Every structure is written in C-alpha cells, then in structure tokens.
Simulated assay, not measured.
Amino acid sequence: MASILVLGGTSWLGGTVAARAVALGHEVTCLARGESGTVPDGARLVRADRADPAAYEALAGPVSWDLVVDVARQPGHVRGAIAALAHRATHWVFVSSCSVYARHDEPRADESATLLPALGADEATPEQYGEGKVACESAVAEGRAGAALIARSGLIVGHGDPTERFGYWPGRFAQAARDGGAVLVPDHPNQQVQWVDVGDLADWLVSAGLSGTTGTYNAVGAPVPLEHVLDAAARVAGFHGEVVRADGETLDRMGIQEFMGPRSLPLWLRDPEWQAFMDRSGAAATRAGLASRPLETTMSDALAWEEQLGTDRARSKAGLDRHDELDVIAAISAGSAQPVSERSISD
C-alpha cells in the first residue's frame, strides 16, 4: 500500500485519480476546498484553499508521500505546492496539457515542439491557459530537479466529462434515434481526432507515478478520422437514420462554431492553424505504459453520462440544442441556408 496525495480530488480527473488509487488499496489524501464535490469513498479530505499561502499547513507534520499528483492550472498553486511539499514526496506527477504548444498545425509533433512563453504571474486567465500550464511545468521541473512525471493531456473524455464535447455525439445520435430526426455533422471526415479516456489516464498517472517514471509525455491516444468517431457514436447509440453533412462555409453562414461553445459542432476544426490540435505523437507515453481502451467502450461510457445528464438538456458548453439543429437541417435541406442573423430560430 502506498501513500498518495492528490492535490484536488473532488472534481473530474482528480476525483478519478483518487478513486482508482483507493480501488488499488492505496492510502489516499485529497487536499481541496471541497466545493467541487466530494472525495471518493475511502479517501480522506483535507480542506484547504490553495490560493491561501497557509494552505499546506493543514498537511503539517512529518508525513511524507510515495506519490503526489497535482492537476492544477494556476501557476501560483503549483509553485506553492512545490515549495511546501516537493521535499516530502518520493514521486511527483503533474497533469499539464497539449495547450502548452505554440503551434497546432504540425501533424504528429512530439514533446520537443516549441512551447508558448511561460506566464510570469501566479494566476492565469482562461485565455492564458496554455501559458499558465507552461509556467506550472517549469515550477515542477525546477522544484523537483527533473524528478517528476509531466503528463501533457490531450482531450480528456469519458464518463463524467464536464465539457460536453465528446459526449455530445453519442448523446445526440441517441436522441435522434428516439425522435426519428436527422443529425447534422460537419463534412470534414478526414480531420483527425485524438483523446485520452479519463479512466486510462488516471490508471497511468498512478501506476507510472508510483513506478518512478519521469519526463514529459503527450498523454494522448492514436489519432482517428472524425468520420470514424461519428460512426462509433452512431453505433453505440443505435442510430440508423439520416445524417446531413454540411461544409464549413455553410456552417459558418449559419453561425455554427467549431469545436466547442454555444451553437457549435463539437470536435470539428475548420481553422488550418488548428488542424493538428488533436493529432500529436503519443508514442513516448505509449512506450511508458499508457494504454487506450477501445473507442466503442469510451463512447459507451460517454453515452451513459449523457443519458444521466439528460440528452434533451439545453446546450451551452458545446453542441446545438435539438430544436435549433432541426431548424438548421431544414434550411440546408431546402437550399435556403441563411446567416443566423437573417433567419428565425424557433424558441
């Protein structure tokens, strides 16, 4: 049994890491405010706000950990953790992001690709997410003298996904299978899509961390054409109806965004400068033991989560509301697709 400290542990990835560690029989402590949720059964919660300089006093004492896992996005939080705890941990894992890279138009680029400049401030805005993660990586690398595992995660998907991007597709196909209507998809079949299942990532962070794996890795699976992802979503949802394909110009005229956000088609990327955002080399992580479950398994887990949330809910984080989608399909099918500002969207 190992002693593991998760800096977080009450939200999605951190909670999954804590749950997997508990399931493996480890002693798990989670340091968190406790406002995002509860820790998994079997884990101990230590309440603290990492924005408070005294946050780590709650962990005072001679206690050390076999592994610390940090999923923070704010440089100040990571710098504080390193200063307080780096000398009290045998192994250290920091979850970063592929958003640290300066370019996203280089297919299969590996970990040597150019990074964004590191953020000097302690707090990153959402627009500074990548620069903030670079600063976090630097703090970990310096504070641990290179003795850390830095996992640059790609698109994290699966059960519990709060972003609604991956799960939108099996959820929408399931909804359409019930109502008998068509589904709108981007006509960009060969665009690459890449992800990592939250369960696979959590398993690897714990196992690789405890085994002493160090270095920086793109924590991603193999890229797959968008068409294959959509086909898998339709299969697990039991959808056999009509699919309406729309090119980028048509979708742009209709006011439909790419990738995420309100009135979007998730996972679709039109901008040439972002075509390799989900097409990076994960070879190093694979050699280090990161395994990927079958697409259909991940898609089924995503569908179960969508069904739990309700597939007919309003879409604000990613995707189209169903009535909006059907209006768009009708306009496209009638050959009268107009900019969204020039047509009526039903309430």
Rank of each mutant, 00 (worst) to 15 (best):
A72V: 10
D347N: 06
D312Q: 12
F173R: 02
D179S: 02
R235Q: 12
M254L: 15
A139W: 02
G158C: 08
S264K: 08
W169N: 02
L265Q: 06
Q175S: 15
A43S: 07
P266W: 14
L59F: 04
A60N: 04
G15M: 05
A233F: 10
L290D: 12
A237D: 08
A141G: 08
R144V: 09
V93E: 04
L265G: 05
A54M: 08
A121Q: 12
T311N: 13
W65M: 03
V46A: 04
K317V: 06
S99R: 11
S96E: 09
G255R: 01
P40M: 08
R172N: 13
S336T: 15
C136P: 00
F277D: 05
K317R: 13
Q257K: 14
W65A: 01
R315Q: 15
Q275V: 12
A84D: 05
G289C: 12
Q275S: 13
P223F: 07
V134D: 12
R73T: 15
R33L: 10
A60H: 08
G221P: 06
Q128I: 11
A145L: 02
L184I: 02
L85V: 10
T29S: 05
W195N: 03
G34L: 02
G132M: 06
L320G: 02
A219T: 02
P189E: 03
Y101H: 14
E249T: 10
A48M: 11
R235W: 03
E307G: 00
